[in-house]
């Protein structure tokens, strides 16, 4: 079994035709399904939040069988994820894609749980601490993408569960929970 670091690649990754968009619908549906699962799975375990379509990405080519996905194929797979709410285009040219293995609402839930677990129901925490602090170490929040975090915070802010306050620089932006 081929591996990317610690990540185990599925068998289809070694089968050349999976790197060409299939013309027959049923076959293509199956192909898309496999790629979708692979991309989400990989991003989740490797904590990849953004995929650049024109940049190097380990899943987009397989040197062992000398195949790589065309731009069209990359865009097709990611578009399906976008349709299913598992990804979002970050620009109108579809050059960058934000991967949401958890939907934004789910991230918001995770944040609330994080606050409860750390006794922060009425507490204050900085954005930096959420992303890289000792409390978040080993949790899913560790290293969370800034865009995703902001969107999750916004949802909670609208529900009145917290207030985001700005400091003098972006470094000391913080959150006051009121759960």
């Amino acid at each position: 079994m081929q591996k990317l670091g610690e990540f185990k690649l599925p068998p289809f990754f070694n089968y050349p035709p999976y790197f060409t968009l299939q013309p027959v619908r049923d076959t293509r549906d199956k192909q898309i399904q496999l790629w979708k699962d692979l991309i989400l799975d990989y991003c989740k375990t490797q904590k990849v939040f953004v995929i650049g379509l024109e940049e190097e990405f380990p899943l987009f080519s397989n040197p062992v069988i000398e195949r790589s996905l065309t731009h069209e194929a990359r865009e097709t797979f990611l578009s399906v994820l976008v349709v299913e709410g598992r990804a979002e285009w970050m620009d109108k040219f579809h050059r960058k894609c934000l991967i949401l293995w958890h939907r934004i609402e789910e991230w918001a839930e995770i944040l609330v749980q994080f606050a409860r677990d750390n006794g922060l129901e009425d507490g204050v925490v900085t954005i930096e601490e959420i992303r890289f602090g000792t409390e978040s170490q080993g949790t899913e929040l560790q290293g969370i993408d800034r865009t995703i975090l902001n969107r999750a915070l916004k949802i909670l802010e609208q529900k009145g569960k917290l207030v985001v306050f700005k400091g003098t620089s972006t470094d000391d932006e913080g959150v006051k929970f009121s759960l």
Binding site: M1, Y15, P16, P17, Y18, T20, Q22, E66
Partner: peptide, 30 residues
């Protein structure tokens, strides 16, 4: 192809389309 028994592969450097058959390929056993 239509029956789903073959898959196309345009990725080889010689540019020639290959038709793969998962039912006869050893890789499918995995």
């Amino acid at each position: 192809l239509d029956e789903g028994l073959a898959m196309i592969d345009d990725g080889h450097q010689d540019g020639k389309r290959r038709y793969w058959f998962p039912c006869v390929s050893p890789i499918s056993s995995s």
